[in-house]
């Protein structure tokens, strides 16, 4: 059985080819091999969502995803959430609403909300709640996060 594999995938628009241990998690590959440390180690067992990245546009828990499963995939991490390096509207809204306190969950929440808003620019509250259902925040009680997302989803309406 192979102990190492050659992995080819796209990270934030760049093609990457690496020889990695076959059992490497996607999160360890992103953080340790590529040194993109924005995606966080939280629970490490798929419960908290701090590690959320986009795999072919869909939010995915990188800590319980094998990197080997992502052969040929397009991965977006928090470092690539905008093209030019500025803040994404979700990030700006979270900043305005103080939706990040300790900030550890924030990259995962931004990625989950980015995926939601790219699929549906004006989601309902229930769709927002569902899309946030994989992300745990121990600081905010979610109120400020929801206010920020609603502001982006429905500009001008009460949040």
């Amino acid at each position: 059985m192979p102990t190492e594999i050659t992995l080819r995938l796209q990270i934030n628009g760049e093609q990457v080819r690496r020889i990695i241990p076959a059992n490497r998690s996607l999160l360890d590959f992103i953080r340790e091999d590529l040194r993109l440390t924005g995606s966080k180690h939280g629970c490490d067992v798929g419960d908290c969502g701090a590690c959320t990245v986009l795999v072919d546009g869909a939010p995915q828990l990188a800590c319980i995803t094998l990197a080997a499963e992502c052969e040929g995939a397009a991965i977006r991490t928090i470092e690539g959430v905008t093209d030019g390096g500025g803040l994404h509207p979700i990030q700006e809204a979270l900043h305005r609403h103080v939706g990040a306190q300790c900030g550890y969950c924030t990259p995962g929440i931004v990625m989950a909300m980015t995926s939601l808003l790219e699929a549906d620019p004006h989601p309902s509250d229930s769709a927002i709640n569902e899309a946030l259902g994989s992300n745990i925040c121990r600081c905010t009680g979610y109120t400020k996060i929801l206010a920020a997302v609603r502001e982006v989803a429905r500009p001008g309406s009460p949040s």
Partner: peptide
């Protein structure tokens, strides 16, 4: 056997399950 891995990866992380994998990808 590994499929989605949502349970198995946790067990591997914690070291309570060890061994080679056959991934159904």
């Amino acid at each position: 056997v590994r499929a989605g891995g949502t349970d198995l990866q946790e067990r591997l992380h914690k070291g309570i399950t060890k061994g080679d994998l056959r991934d159904l990808r």
